[in-house]
Design a protein around this nucleic acid. Structure first.
Length: 642
RNA sequence: GCCGACGUAGCUCAGCUGGUAGAGCACUUCACUCGUAAUGAAGGGGUCCGGGGUUCGAGUCCCCGCGUCGGCUCCA
């Protein structure tokens, strides 16, 4: 006898050796038909897998959410591979997993064969044949030797390499193969019972992807697709992707007159007047919040003798991403980051332990020669400005300083209502400065700060900066792609390399510790993410035009200009639309520009010193005295409350 | 940088198999002076990303370059 328990805790008795399919059948015929797989103690397995006595089980059906979608998307990846082998003899297959919103499969095509999205249609047609044929997924556990023989015979070197690595790495002796129709793949599984469970699928894009993520190895052709349990779900998914395009900051920026890009300077935004207002308002926010927290602003050069970059270590590691020039034979580098400049600045002065911590901030303009293919609107640029700061402190002050950097970061995000923040601890990379004892120490300090906040975080092993580990804070864009905004980095190396010292209470020289931190990250990236999160409807305090005064007829233009001036005197960013156009048109255009407040001035308002207030997206709210609306908007701006 | 796609007026896009460029919005002018999401009419505007090539003829086909988009790699 095998006894398993169902999700509601009910025990279910089955014959010894019973499978997931048996369990589903024992519960009901309908469930047996609907069953795709079985989850045993949290692990999804084939229906044909035997159940372990005492296991908690759950039968996976179409309604099981992500587990079920992962399953058929993985199935669809196998069907794609089967179709590709049908259509492209000699194609080499590598791997094809499910991913968050779909799946991919990586192929190597024979010489001279290129694969493009124009080929999707015939591949999809071939895939449909396999789905229609209702081909079962059959698992076969074989010895490593058998598997190697099979894939060598089929001339599938990537599969051979995967098996060899499994043997070398994990010492496996058996591997599992899954066969659907004519196609057999090395695969851990699980899979649904047959290809017919795939109800709707679509190939989406083709991309290059390096074998095993290694740029020095063969580049394969990756085919992305997605699959669902119904055509409606698939269409709904595609519709959402289309909607996300409307929130794309690259579309919103020019539309709202915030910024533009030009071929003449790839990766560098041209900030238009309204975008510059937003940009400056964010810098102002950083300044005010920094001042409250004991930061002092500094201003350091753009160009430095290569000596500085050699001292910091950047010359060796990042020179190819730096813009360099020379003057009178002296090599110079345009700063890609502020830290060496700040370290040098620290060294120009004399320091006592009584002066620490010193917190230097600078909205420094940086240039990095990013790979052309990496550029992405405002989110990845070559010219940008970080809300950068460096804290120089004693060993004893680290904990408190890192903690207050994190507090500062969350306080900044709270201003914008950002609460879904991904936290990562990035640890020592292969190429690094400093010995292991230093790294142990530094990583430990960051872990403690995170623990003190009670924050849950992911470990990003090997992704630290070359001078120290870091805590990274991530937000998602409109398509769910994750972007690093904030970072707090602990650095024991650079102060020593720059020979920085302070005089301790013992009258001896000591080396300070340096904390690098940026919270918004760069103003460019932050504005990009903010636009995607708000769909361009910036909070009132940040809107480039907070109020637009709309005279109804030309005779109201004088009064309207007076209203605008009064608002401006109160510190409100107000503009006037005095064109000879209908109010309807002016309102439509202001709505499209997402201006938060439209203030209409006609005969009635001119008469009694009021404006008719219309909120963006909400319609007419009636008349309000000019002084009152000016005070209201000034208060909102001062408080950054909406 | 690599793989694939794309690049036509300020913007969004049309332009079939090669036969000398088109719409809507925007812009300019004129008329209208208007009460909460488009007043009407007329007009101007294009080295079809750049450079080569094939052809009697190239926006359209081929090659090279640049840029953008989706990925990969990278991201101090």
């Amino acid at each position: 006898m095998t006894t398993v328990s169902l999700p509601d805790g009910t025990p279910l008795e089955l014959a010894a050796g019973a499978t997931g399919a048996d369990a589903a059948a024992a519960i009901g015929a309908g469930l047996a038909r609907a069953a795709l797989a079985v989850k045993q103690d949290g692990v999804v397995q084939d229906l044909a897998a035997p159940l372990a006595d005492g296991a908690r089980i759950e039968v996976i059906t179409e309604r099981s959410g992500q587990d079920a979608l992962d399953l058929i998307r993985h199935d669809t990846a196998h069907v794609l591979a089967a179709a590709m082998l049908d259509l492209y003899p000699g194609v080499k297959i590598s791997i094809g997993p499910p991913i968050e919103h779909g799946f991919y499969y990586d192929f190597e095509f024979p010489d001279g064969v290129t694969f493009t999205d124009a080929d999707f249609e015939r591949v999809e047609a071939e895939m449909r044949k396999h789905v229609k044929a209702d081909e079962p997924f059959v698992r076969d556990d074989v010895t490593v030797a058998e598997a190697l023989e099979r894939f060598r015979a089929e001339d599938q070197p990537y599969k051979v390499e995967l098996i060899e690595d499994l043997v070398a790495g994990d010492g496996v002796e058996h591997v599992s193969l899954y066969t659907n129709g004519p196609f057999t793949d090395l695969c851990r599984g699980p899979h649904a019972p047959s290809t017919k469970r795939i109800k709707a699928f679509k190939l989406q894009s083709v991309a290059g992807a390096y074998w095993r993520g290694d740029a020095s190895r063969q580049q394969l052709t990756r085919v992305y697709g997605t699959a669902f349990f119904s055509k409606d779900d698939l269409e709904e998914h595609l519709r959402r992707l289309e909607e996300a395009r409307a929130r794309d900051h690259r579309r919103l920026g020019p539309q709202l007159g915030l910024f533009a890009f030009s071929d003449i300077s790839p990766g560098a935004a041209f900030w238009l007047p309204h975008g510059t207002r937003v940009y400056n308002a964010l810098i102002q926010l950083s300044r005010e919040m920094g001042e409250e927290r004991g930061y002092t602003e500094v201003n350091t050069p753009q160009l430095y003798d290569a000596e500085l970059w050699k001292t910091s270590g950047h010359w060796g590691k990042y020179r190819e991403h730096m813009y360099v020039t020379e003057s009178e034979g002296r090599p110079l580098g345009l700063k890609p980051m502020n830290c060496p400049g700040h370290a040098h600045l620290f060294g120009l002065q004399q320091w006592s332990y009584r002066d620490l911590p010193a917190r230097y901030s600078e909205p420094g303009l940086l240039h990095r020669d990013e790979l052309s293919g990496a550029l992405h609107g405002l989110l990845r640029v070559r010219r940008f400005c970080q809300d950068d700061a460096h804290v120089f402190c004693t060993e004893e002050q680290i904990q408190e300083e890192v903690t207050s950097c994190l507090d500062f970061a969350f306080a900044t995000y709270a201003v914008f209502g950002f609460d879904r923040i991904g936290i990562e601890l990035s640890t020592r990379p292969d190429e690094r400065l400093g010995d292991d004892a230093l790294w142990d120490h530094a990583e430990g300090a960051l872990e403690q700060a995170l623990a003190a906040h009670g924050l849950s975080y992911a470990i990003n092993a090997g992704d630290g900066a070359f001078y120290g580990p870091k805590i990274d804070l991530h937000l998602e864009d409109s398509l769910g792609r994750s972007w690093q905004l904030g970072t707090v980095q602990l650095d024991y190396s650079m102060p020593a390399r720059f020979g920085l010292t302070y005089t301790g209470a013992d009258n001896a020289d000591h080396t300070p510790v340096m904390i690098h931190r940026a919270l918004m990250g760069s103003y460019e990236r932050f504005i990009g993410i903010l636009l995607e999160h708000t769909a361009g409807e910036l909070p009132v305090w940040l809107a480039p035009v907070q109020a637009l005064v709309l005279p109804i007829a030309d005779r109201h233009a004088g009064v309207a200009a007076g209203v605008r001036d009064e608002l401006r005197r109160a510190g409100v960013r107000a503009d006037l639309d005095a064109r000879t156009e209908s109010v309807g048109r002016k309102i439509r255009e202001a709505e499209l520009r997402k201006v938060p407040y439209m203030l209409v001035v006609g005969d009635r308002e001119a008469e009694d010193g009021t404006v008719a207030v219309r909120r963006h997206g909400e319609g007419d709210e009636g008349s309000v005295a000019v002084a009152e609306i000016a005070g209201r908007l000034a208060a909102i701006t001062a408080a950054r409350s909406a």
